[in-house]
Design a protein around this nucleic acid. Structure first.
Length: 566
RNA sequence: UGGGGUGUAGCCAAGCGGUAAGGCAGCGGCCUUUGGAGCCGCCAUUCGGAGGUUCGAAUCCUCCCGCCCCAGCCA
């Protein structure tokens, strides 16, 4: 048995059985069918990876098909963003870019066929009445008084519906199935409604639009889709999906349902994400805190890490909420191999090396990535006045602290050993404003002949040779792991994390970053992975987004210490 | 109290009648010019519960329980 490759799942099992039975002449053809009514999010990425992945794995094809049957919610802006995102994720639909709206004429003919066969009728009940007639979960519905309208009359009226002779909502076309079915979807579902709205692709050509259940399965059939993969909530729709294909006697795609992705500390519904954008809680769909593909991209996530994540979470029918740490792990694993290391000081503390000559500047060698020697090295300037991270100094060092403190010796990465002397404080506030240290000239490069142990290694930048920059630190969008789980009358926005974004404006980065490209990713040593914000960076000032932190062992130790003190 | 699904570790997830994979998280240790990375080890005598069938059950049968979805002219 193959012990490599993607892990098994129930959909692969189905496909393999179909292949074995030579169903569909051995073809595997899937599709990714977004509705262009919002931006794609990481949940869609799961579906995209699944559909395109399966097609690639079984030498099949995957179409990109926009499910654009409701012009009141759909826009070209969304189709453009969706195409961009799917491509960015690394998938190619070649020339198979389709739209349900491409099939409107064909779908209309299918509807005519149903009417002629006595399988559909024009119903003139109001929306409210249709709801009343539908019955409830426990009681059967009752037949519409229009159910036995003659085929000729329905046909005539449907043609008039298309011609625009009736106002919105006055009539609908319904499938004639069974008003007593325990499955509400089978109680004479509406398949066409009158909607005098302009469509982003067909303009004003149509004023009747097909409903999802009718359009989707038939679009699958038209495209020869063998495995139509969708999410769990459509399970109840499968009998209807099958019914249309059977009545019309057309190519029968197989609908397969899987559990959608949920992630902790965020929300995944397009409606909720739209709300956050429209109500100004987010700067846009691409706010780096959003779980959208555009948000993750701007945040610094790589397509590779997202694909890896989608493969690792698996595919099953159990509703699940994946731990956000898995996504972060995938990102770190990818960037650890590929991101150049660089030094940046987020909260600068001035440090003067008293025994280092005033005007001297030397260039020290710094390896770009210890994981990959092919990435080479660069020179970084060192001088008498530096900045180090404010939190790397403690006047009173706690246990196991091996960063800087009065009298202690630490290593400045790639540079020298320094020992801390005087601590200069601001008179009024007592705030530490400057540190005075001495360096050991024998420790150039960061080691000495005597091989004495220096446990702490700090990152730093030269004050005169560094660039001022803005850095944005991000945290979970919500402070609650399951923000969807709200009490009656409350709102998921109550759980928005007030600290999900923090902007630091006086950061310093090494000058090698001067021409860093928008979107490029770096590891700020000892801190995390950051990427150049592609929206707010300017020629004067680069803006960095923190994608993910590095694992912080000291924070863990300190937390444990505080816990035992209690 | 209708119908459709689903329960394996804190979170995912394999398993398909032969005696509980793997990943994340967590916890120890080693190593380290990033307290990063890496490496080593630990982490389910038991699969929602109770019965039953079987030499043998997470896998088959029965009953029970929990959770999710469905009453748009949304998708």
């Amino acid at each position: 048995m193959a012990d490599s490759g993607p892990p098994p799942n129930f959909i692969r099992d189905i496909i393999e059985k179909d292949l074995k039975d030579n169903k569909n002449e051995g073809r595997v053809h899937t599709r990714f069918p977004p509705e262009p009514n919002g931006y794609l999010h990481i949940g869609h990425a799961k579906s995209i990876c699944l559909n395109f992945g399966l097609a690639a794995e079984y030498r099949g094809l995957c179409n990109l098909r926009f499910d654009d049957t409701n012009p009141s919610k759909e826009e070209v802006e969304y189709v453009e963003s969706i195409k961009y995102d799917v491509r960015w994720l690394g998938f190619d639909w070649e020339n198979r870019e389709y739209y349900a709206s491409d099939y409107f004429e064909q779908l209309y003919q299918y509807a005519i066929q149903l009417i002629k066969g006595g399988k559909a009728y024009v119903c003139s009940l109001s929306a409210d009445e249709i709801r009343e007639y539908r019955g409830t979960l426990t009681e059967p519905g009752k037949d519409s008084p229009y159910r036995e309208r003659s085929i000729e009359e329905s046909l005539d009226m449907f043609v008039c519906m298309r011609k625009g002779e009736f106002p919105d909502g006055s009539h609908v076309l319904r499938a004639k199935i069974d008003m007593a079915s325990p499955n509400l979807n089978m109680r004479d579902p509406v398949i066409y409604r009158i909607m005098k709205a302009s469509h982003h692709r067909t303009g004003d050509k149509w004023c009747i639009y097909p409903m999802y259940d009718f359009a989707h399965g038939l679009s699958d059939s038209i495209e020869g889709i063998t495995h139509s993969i969708c999410t769990l909530e459509f399970e109840d729709h499968r009998p209807l999906y099958d019914w249309f294909l059977d009545q019309l006697d057309v190519f029968h795609s197989q609908q397969i349902e899987f559990a959608r992705l949920n992630l902790g500390y965020t929300v995944m519904s397009k409606r909720k994400l739209l709300g956050l954008v429209e109500e100004g809680f987010m700067t846009g769909w691409d706010d780096p805190r959003m779980p959208t593909i555009s948000g993750l991209r701007r945040r610094g996530y790589t397509p590779e890490s997202i694909r890896d994540f989608c493969e690792r979470i698996g595919v099953a029918k159990k509703e699940s909420t994946v731990d956000i740490t898995l996504l972060e792990h995938c990102l770190r694993e990818d960037l650890n191999q590929r991101a150049p290391r660089v030094m940046a000081v987020l909260r600068p503390l001035r440090l003067v090396i008293d025994n280092y000559p005033e005007r001297k500047m030397e260039e020290l060698d710094a390896v770009n990535n210890p994981e990959d020697s092919s990435m080479g090295s660069r020179k970084i300037p060192f001088s008498r006045v530096l900045y180090i991270e404010r939190e790397d100094f403690r006047e009173i060092p706690p246990k196991k602290w091996f960063r800087l403190s009065p009298g202690s010796e630490v290593r400045l990465k790639h540079a020298y050993y320094i020992t801390c002397g005087d601590v200069v404080k601001e008179n009024q506030t007592g705030e530490i404003i400057e540190l005075h240290c001495t360096y050991d000239p024998e420790s150039r490069g960061g080691w000495t002949k005597d091989e004495r142990k220096v446990k702490g290694t700090l990152h730093w930048v030269s004050a005169a040779h560094s660039l001022k920059t803005e850095v944005r630190l991000y945290d979970h969008l919500f402070s609650k792991a399951d923000p969807d789980n709200v009490e009656e009358g409350s709102d998921f926005k109550t759980f928005l994390n007030p600290n999900s974004s923090e902007t630091l404006t006086s950061c310093r980065i090494e000058q090698s970053l001067k021409n860093a490209k928008p979107g490029s990713r770096y590891q700020f040593m000892r801190q995390g992975y950051f990427c150049v914000d592609s929206v707010d960076s300017s020629h004067d000032t680069l803006v960095f987004n923190r994608t993910a932190t590095l694992r912080d062992t000291w924070a863990k130790i300190e937390k444990a210490q505080k816990k035992t003190e209690k």
